[in-house]
Simulated scan of single mutants.
Amino acid sequence: MVRSNRSKGRAARAREGHPDLDVERLTTGWRRTEQRAGREWNVQPVSEVQAVKAYLCPGCGLDVEPGTAHLVAWRADGVLGDAADLAARRHWHTHCWRIGAR
């Protein structure tokens, strides 16, 4: 049987259906939870397009320049509550977070 390289077309794709979208995953921006130094951290990547301000990286003490992809990290298991943990979030260079610089 000869294989066709033509696309199936919109009607055929519609019959196949689409997988359900995970709205929570889309709205959290790929946020994940990591264990580090006996604590639980929420870690969320920030793309180059989203990075519009300069921040001070707590790992190396240098600026995270606007337009630089980086990570935002905050405690997931803090005792003062989610609002306090979110207010204490810090922007890290991806490399600094990966190597665990403090």
Results as ranks from 00 to 15, higher is better:
45 P>N: 05
46 V>R: 11
91 H>A: 07
59 G>N: 01
42 N>H: 12
64 V>K: 00
8 K>Y: 15
5 N>V: 10
25 R>A: 15
8 K>C: 13
43 V>M: 07
78 G>P: 01
65 E>Q: 11
45 P>W: 09
43 V>L: 10
39 R>V: 09
38 G>R: 02
51 A>G: 01
28 T>G: 10
81 G>W: 02
2 V>L: 11
96 C>D: 14
56 L>R: 15
77 D>C: 06
63 D>C: 11
75 R>N: 10
61 G>E: 02
92 W>D: 05
65 E>S: 04
98 R>M: 10
101 A>V: 04
44 Q>P: 00
93 H>N: 08
45 P>T: 05
41 W>R: 01
99 I>E: 11
34 E>H: 08
15 R>E: 09
15 R>C: 08
24 E>D: 13
75 R>V: 08
36 R>C: 05
40 E>G: 07
89 R>P: 01
85 D>W: 04
49 V>K: 08
66 P>S: 07
1 M>R: 14
75 R>Q: 12
88 A>F: 06
11 A>H: 06
67 G>Q: 00
50 Q>E: 15
16 E>V: 05
42 N>R: 10
70 H>G: 01
30 W>M: 14
73 A>C: 15
20 D>Y: 00
49 V>Y: 11
69 A>P: 00
74 W>C: 03
18 H>N: 08
68 T>Q: 07
18 H>I: 07
19 P>A: 07
85 D>V: 04
78 G>V: 05
102 R>Y: 10
45 P>Q: 09
1 M>T: 14
43 V>E: 12
79 V>Y: 10
70 H>N: 04
35 Q>M: 08
51 A>R: 03
22 D>W: 02
29 G>E: 02
83 A>D: 13
101 A>T: 10
60 C>K: 01
61 G>K: 01
79 V>M: 11
71 L>E: 07
13 R>A: 09
75 R>C: 12
69 A>G: 00
7 S>F: 04
25 R>T: 03
41 W>Q: 02
36 R>A: 13
48 E>G: 12
97 W>T: 02
71 L>M: 13
9 G>R: 11
74 W>L: 00
